[in-house]
């Protein structure tokens, strides 16, 4: 085809451009719909408990992801320091994922269970009190902000509409679950049946109130702690052939 013809006809130029871009796009996008699962399933993953989910919202709101990543890359230095590299399933219930792209502070993908609740509290209130060289700001105010959870079922319902498998029961009992997890009292057995491995207890050393601090620590304490990597084959991270 004569090049001058394309250059002189906007309609033709537009059509041909569209065709070229479509090919490039389709090659990348179509197979994703065809693959049975792009996220190989692993044992142990479950949706966040309502309290953890609200903690996650606070993590997002405060912009923690701008300084902390949640993605351990498969490099030796990272694996030696942070533990097993992150696998796709570990962020399958994250909407949106909080992988981050910058590490001013350390990676948090496996911080769950690494420190006690008391440490997390002391650190969030005054980071320099436990890590003298830290440049992290204080988040002490979270301790004084009551957690708002009247609308938690709506949050969970929104997540359900994008594919997180919250059941009707989970939605119904969401408020009770928050109270049970943040106080360690109430029907905790029932909570643990729905959400295995959930950390229970008063996270912010203030049993009289459920605060945003409770939610944030509950979230931090579950990060990367759901999949048991000591089980052989737990991290079979390539899609089934």
């Amino acid at each position: 085809m004569n090049h001058a013809l394309i250059e002189k006809s906007v309609a033709l130029l537009f059509m041909l451009t569209f065709i070229v871009i479509s090919i490039g796009g389709l090659v990348q996008i179509v197979p994703l719909f065809k693959i049975a699962t792009t996220v190989p399933p692993v044992e142990g993953m479950r949706p966040y408990t309502p309290l953890e989910q609200l903690g996650r919202n606070i993590y997002t709101r405060e912009g923690c992801y701008t300084c902390h990543s949640q993605m351990i890359r498969p490099f030796r230095d990272e694996v030696e320091r942070y533990g097993h590299y992150s696998i796709p399933a570990e962020s399958m219930y994250d909407h949106p994922f909080l992988w981050g792209s910058k590490r001013t502070g350390p990676d948090l993908a496996r911080v769950g269970g690494k420190y006690s609740n008391a440490w997390q509290l002391a650190h969030l209130v005054n980071p320099q009190s436990v890590v003298p060289v830290s440049i992290m700001p204080s988040y002490a105010f979270l301790k004084n902000k009551p957690l708002q959870y009247d609308d938690i079922d709506l949050h969970l319902n929104a997540l359900r509409s994008v594919g997180v498998p919250y059941s009707d029961e989970m939605l119904e009992k969401a408020r009770a679950d928050i109270e049970a997890q943040a106080t360690g009292q109430g029907d905790t057995d029932d909570l643990l049946k729905r959400y295995p491995k959930a950390r229970l207890g008063d996270f912010d050393a203030n049993p009289s109130e459920i605060t945003e601090m409770d939610a944030l620590i509950a979230y931090l304490q579950i990060l990367g702690a759901l999949v048991d990597f000591s089980e052989p084959g737990a991290a079979n991270a390539t899609p089934a052939k």
């Binding site: 693959i35 049975a36 890359r73 498969p74 030796r76 590299y85 390539t238 052939k241």
Partner: peptide, 28 residues
């Protein structure tokens, strides 16, 4: 490099970042 309809093309070398990590770890 390429997705296929069911899985993805694994490449002639069979390289994955995970197996490379495992090699480094074993060596260390």
């Amino acid at each position: 490099a390429w997705p296929t309809t069911k899985t993805y093309y694994t490449g002639l070398l069979g390289w994955t970042s995970h197996s490379e990590l495992a090699e480094y770890q074993t060596e260390a």
